[in-house]
Design a protein around this nucleic acid. Structure first.
Lengths: 297, 297
DNA sequence: GTTCCGCATGAATCGATAG
DNA sequence: ACTATCGATTCATGCGGAA
């Protein structure tokens, strides 16, 4: 019986080469592309590894298709970081930006993912690399951006505002609405939130075992909030273990994923079938599911 | 009498065009170049502003000289950020990296300066820009790097370790060694410091120093610690109000600065003459100066 | 002497208006 | 059409004055 339900909500993920499978997607149909393609010369045993000097040439056929399927109001966020080759940062990411602009993309912005806990390590002439590029491309200057969805508390929120409340204030107001936040806090929610910056400060923790380069849920979540609304289509042409698609579905978006390595595809499939229960519509299940749904928002 | 002493320690700053003045510096004489050139099309009323499309062409004559004067073991740290032009990030910084590599530079690393307080503003399609590039170039793969000089306390040092000490613990141990730190703290100094990452998280300078684009002292300080030792030569060919040179001198390095705008040169000159007292060697002055020296370290 | 509040001030960017 | 100028927007910081 559960099986039946799973099938009904079966996610849109595909096993195969994005270069070919993307051609089957119709023009101007995707609201957000969020992906982290295989890095140059890495993950050799799985993807084979693309030589840094050939990286741009390798990537352009994909980005050509992505340009076609993206809506004019849509956004492409590319998570990538150049590798150190022979003691130098290789320039393939810079070259890729140039080549994609020639292909017709607009290089709108470059966000920084500042990794809170990067992998420890020490080299004689180099520190730990604790940031990655999140390069934003668009088809046109007028793209959708829902800035209010990612607002954050003001900088001194914890330091000053919270301190001013007496303990009794906090307890009394908590008791009133049972939300865990006092009414004063509710006021802050209305007033004292500000827009974030182009630096996203998140931990690297990822619960996806089996895939070597998974990012934390919060990373796609932030960009999905920012660039899509419910019901929109989110595409990850290098799905890996499926983080982007899972998160998109959890957020009420339509996640589409493509992965060429069967092992990763299976992991993604398993994750998605598990998580799809949470979004089963129309309350056909027992009430016990409600808190799980809540967890999403 | 004081005047005499000032003259003795008069700093190496020059008023004029770096393109010309740099030719007078001898080959392979500089250990660190740390500079923040005028950004494209900015500071119109002072520098005249360089058009983004002409920026690379404008900069290469400078970097050519810098390549000559830098020691083979030296490092060039370039603080720069591309401007938004017509809704898109302009590519002149990426182009500059490419051009400088063709000139013979190695693009070793890119540090991120994550600005705590970025310029405010709100736009329909863009967040506040709160990071800048600190691009590291070298002449050879074997450059000097003193990593131990910039080690930082482990992340939870202030929050947890220090808090765990009872007040009596602190007082008792302070009394024992009179160092101002308890013995437990001494242990932490030995053990619980780690190497930093390639993200530097600092606030921008807020107080008006008369120069519109001053970075905080901590920024050059960090790189001077990392790439030079005492007595080394630090060059800033776009000195501005002199932050880099002042900090270098304070740290016992030999700071050299060049500035083309007289107004900024005068500010730098004033700052340097004031701060040079602090480093007067050999204790020729009354003891009262000691606390000022202390302030530096 | 402290702590706290109010205020001015930026390496900016967009969109409208004016020449 | 294309460039130049201007107003509106926004928030972390450090200063000075007040309690």
């Amino acid at each position: 019986m559960k099986r039946k339900k799973i099938k009904k909500t079966e996610p849109n993920i595909y096993l195969g080469d994005s270069k070919e499978l993307l051609t089957e997607l119709i023009d101007n149909s995707v609201d957000l592309i969020f992906t982290s393609p295989p890095y140059a010369d890495s993950r050799k045993n799985t993807y084979g590894g693309i030589h840094p000097d050939k990286y741009v040439e390798w990537f352009l056929p994909f980005s050509s298709q992505l340009l076609r399927v993206l809506k004019p109001t849509g956004t492409f966020v590319l998570n990538i970081k150049e590798k150190v080759v022979d003691g130098e940062r290789h320039t393939y990411v810079l070259d890729l930006i140039r080549a994609m602009r020639e292909q017709g993309w607009l290089w709108t912005e470059e966000f920084i993912w500042h990794k809170k806990n990067s992998y420890p390590g020490k080299w004689p002439n180099r520190f730990r690399d604790s940031w990655e590029r999140l390069i934003q491309f668009n088809k046109s200057k007028h793209f959708n951006m829902y800035q209010e969805a990612v607002m954050v508390p003001v900088g001194d929120w914890a330091k000053n505002r919270l301190k001013k409340l007496s303990e009794t204030d906090k307890r009394r107001d908590n008791a009133k609405n049972g939300s865990g936040f006092g009414k004063n806090v509710s006021n802050w929610l209305e007033r004292d939130f500000v827009y974030p910056t182009n630096v996203v400060h998140l931990a690297t923790e990822c619960n996806n075992k089996g895939h070597s380069a998974a990012f934390p849920d919060e990373l796609p979540e932030w960009f999905i909030k920012l660039f899509t609304k419910e019901g929109d289509v989110v595409l990850d042409p290098f799905m890996g273990s499926g983080t982007t698609v899972v998160v998109a579905n959890k957020m009420g978006r339509i996640g589409i994923g493509i992965e060429i390595v069967n092992e990763y595809y299976q992991i993604a499939s398993k994750q998605l079938n598990h998580s799809s229960f949470v979004f089963e519509p129309k309350g056909k299940y027992e009430k016990a599911k409600t808190p799980r749904r809540k967890k999403i928002h």
